[in-house]
């Protein structure tokens, strides 16, 4: 698999406190990578380090397979767009002027892309309105447009839906998905709205106390999170035989526990179990969400 971003043993300290503590990370190319963690887990520090706004104390990372200490890292950075915490915009200028400044700084030969880019993020009607008069949602969209200037291959978004209304969140999600699907742009998105991330991401990295404690792709996570029922039975082998004949998907968890995925008829299943000599002791439905999975993964502790 090809990775756009990899990190190995990244460490960053503020005083004696570790913001990143030997973090490893792998962001597949073309993915929408969701960075999930509590407040203070190290999400923003990680994104700042990847963007070059901070230097790691230890460890290394690579952008487009170019290591951070390499001479060519600058050319790799030209392929990145980012919004860290809030979009950095010039408030006394219009949306188009903001984009033009970025284009000039990047040395782009033409500014013809500006109307198209504004249209893409839904700001084609912004006209001569100064950014200071923009709503939060408009600023976020312009921030994305700024990040898109120069045609980046990787966009890093730190809490992109912060402060957006429900409509704005939907628009932002649709825009990210569109860019990912149509232009193949890789995204790294940190957010504390897990529900939102679950609708967007193809890959996930769970960060806790400065470390990625689990990296998982969307398909794997779907399997883990799909609707299931935990059955307690007297004999799992006999129960498995009954489940096979019923054509249900299942997993034997322990000597007396079977997890069944999908919908089924409880009375029909009880009858099948009886026919093979197994007794159903209890059936507990489980509908795990990304949120409960995250809490389970991090031990369910409080926010720090």
């Amino acid at each position: 698999m090809q990775y756009t971003v990899t990190a190995l043993g990244l460490t960053k300290k503020y005083g004696k406190a570790y913001a990143l503590n030997g973090l490893d990370m792998h962001v597949p190319s073309g993915s929408v990578y969701g960075l999930i963690g509590r407040n203070g887990a190290g999400k923003t520090t990680l994104l700042r380090v990847l963007c070059g706004l901070q230097e790691p104390d230890e460890g290394e990372y690579a952008l487009f397979s170019v290591k951070c200490g390499d001479k060519n890292i600058k050319s790799s950075r030209r392929r990145i767009g980012a919004i860290i915490e809030k979009p950095t915009l010039y408030n006394d200028m219009t949306a188009a002027q903001n984009l033009k400044i970025q284009a000039v700084a990047l040395g782009l030969p033409s500014y013809d892309f500006i109307p198209e880019l504004l249209s893409l993020v839904g700001l084609s009607d912004a006209g001569t309105k100064k950014v200071r008069n923009f709503s939060l949602g408009m600023k976020q969209r312009l921030g994305i447009a700024v990040a898109l200037t120069g045609g980046p291959d990787l966009i890093i978004l730190d809490e992109p839906t912060n402060g957006l209304d429900p409509q704005g969140i939907v628009e932002m999600r649709e825009l990210i998905l569109k860019l990912n699907r149509e232009q193949g742009i890789t995204f790294i998105i940190s957010s504390h709205i897990l529900e939102e991330l679950s609708k967007l991401c193809t890959d996930y990295g769970f960060i806790d106390r400065g470390r990625i404690i689990k990296e998982i792709n969307g398909a794997e996570l779907d399997t883990l999170l799909r609707k299931s029922t935990v059955l307690k039975v007297t004999d799992t082998k006999k129960a498995a035989a009954a489940l096979d004949t019923a054509g249900l998907q299942y997993k034997i968890n322990s000597d007396d526990t079977v997890v069944i995925y999908g919908e089924f008829s409880l009375s029909a299943l009880t009858a099948k179990f009886s026919s093979v000599g197994a007794e159903l002791l209890s059936a507990v439905p489980r509908d795990e969400s990304l949120e409960t999975y995250f809490i389970e993964l991090t031990g369910g502790g409080k926010n720090e």
């Binding site: 963007c51 070059g52 706004l53 890292i73 600058k74 050319s75 790799s76 950075r77 030209r78 990145i80 767009g81 980012a82 860290i84 950095t88 915009l89 010039y90 970025q102 700084a105 990047l106 700024v146 120069g150």
Partner: peptide
Amino acid sequence: GGEASGGCKNKIIYGY
């Protein structure tokens, strides 16, 4: 000051 307070972040991200 406007540049130092935020505008420069984009330029650092671009590799300057």
